[in-house]
Write a protein that binds this DNA or RNA. Sequence first.
DNA 1: ATCGACTCAATAACGTTGTTATATGAGGTT
DNA 2: AACCTCATATAACAACGTTATTGAGTCGAT
Lengths: 224, 224
Amino acid sequence: MPNQRTLTAEPPREDLAARLLEEAEALVRRDGPDGVALRELARACGSSTMAIYTLYGGKPGLMQALYAIGFARLHAYALEVEEREAPLRWMVRQMLAYRRFALDHTGMYRLMFGGEKRFSPTGRHSQFVSLSVPVEDAYPAFAALVDAVGTCLAHHSNTAPAPAEVQDLAFLVWGQMHGLVGLEIAGYADPDDALPRYQSAVRFICASMGADAAAIDAEIAAAG
Amino acid sequence: MPNQRTLTAEPPREDLAARLLEEAEALVRRDGPDGVALRELARACGSSTMAIYTLYGGKPGLMQALYAIGFARLHAYALEVEEREAPLRWMVRQMLAYRRFALDHTGMYRLMFGGEKRFSPTGRHSQFVSLSVPVEDAYPAFAALVDAVGTCLAHHSNTAPAPAEVQDLAFLVWGQMHGLVGLEIAGYADPDDALPRYQSAVRFICASMGADAAAIDAEIAAAG
DNA sequence: ATCGACTCAATAACGTTGTTATATGAGGTT
DNA sequence: AACCTCATATAACAACGTTATTGAGTCGAT
């Protein structure tokens, strides 16, 4: 019998490594970060668990790859709303997009921010690592947030804010977003109140950056 | 040989149910929420895993009991800083105590807010339940936060704020605290910046409630 | 005082988990 | 053609949560 991987093309079967990751992402979506079982994953891909070991070095390596995918997805959400010529709109939509990502990818979000293990953003199978570089350098998704905060702040204050100030504020914004979304995902938010409360957080933050209240509300309404 | 539980008093051995919970809390502290292994737990308590099943109905029941303990501990942190006659001080210390709890009980915090499973705050072994009551009613720790926010807001605005407004603001405050602390625990915060940034969040929030900036800073400094 | 019913926990087993050792077999090189 | 390399299938191992079975202890009633 010929090599199963190269010849059996009934499902297009492309690269096994990519196929494993796809299926693992589906498992995370269905059962959360702990729902990824190597045997089930291998079965779903028509291979044995050994493939995961040769391709990813084991479960931690696989989860690390998944984790990197999660950040790429988050980054895509951020890129989609970038609008440099309308900083307030950009800021508002950036914040709303963050929540949308978390609700669209609950399992992935918990994998990324559950704190179960800390992964390196760039490592080749290289296990979890404590960050020694600023997060904005490591995760493009956060660079996008810093960018939005910086341009929005510059636009409304008519002066160039200090980089440190921008990073500090961006971190607070990130904390506000992550906190509200995390509570919502964990089940601590009334489903009816979650969105309006998140929107009021957007209002608070944009107003503290000097934006006009009516303009903020208009952007929130427009983002629907 | 007599009953091991009632007679062998070499370690005082008190109630096995309480002993199991103690040891489980220690395991959560050491290895996180997923570090609680029934076999290891039973071994540490000198019993078999069956005791856990008769006393707590299984691992979910045990985790639920642990979860309730976590909220009791958080509530204790909140009670310790209650100062009704100094609302700003109360508010500042409440926020700082929240972070202190999370850093003192990282594993427990992740169990409570990791969103892995949602537990009922009051249930007897009764598994995880979706909340149908406002969280303030279910968790005294959050009632304390609502209380602090309400009195602080009333004190600085010289008028009685609407309960809904208080709850909305308290939720945003909770979200800010949880978000910053969650990012810090998950490893996304520069260890040197985490505290000052949290403090500046405290400043932001208290200022938005009408408190004087210098007074806020004084309280933060006094709280050490 | 003795017997029966009940409770509780220890033992052993089952299925599943991640991981590792062994073996097989195809692909490329000499 | 013989060899080497490398990836994967198979099988086994330890540990996990859970369950069935068994035995010991307690309590109440006769």
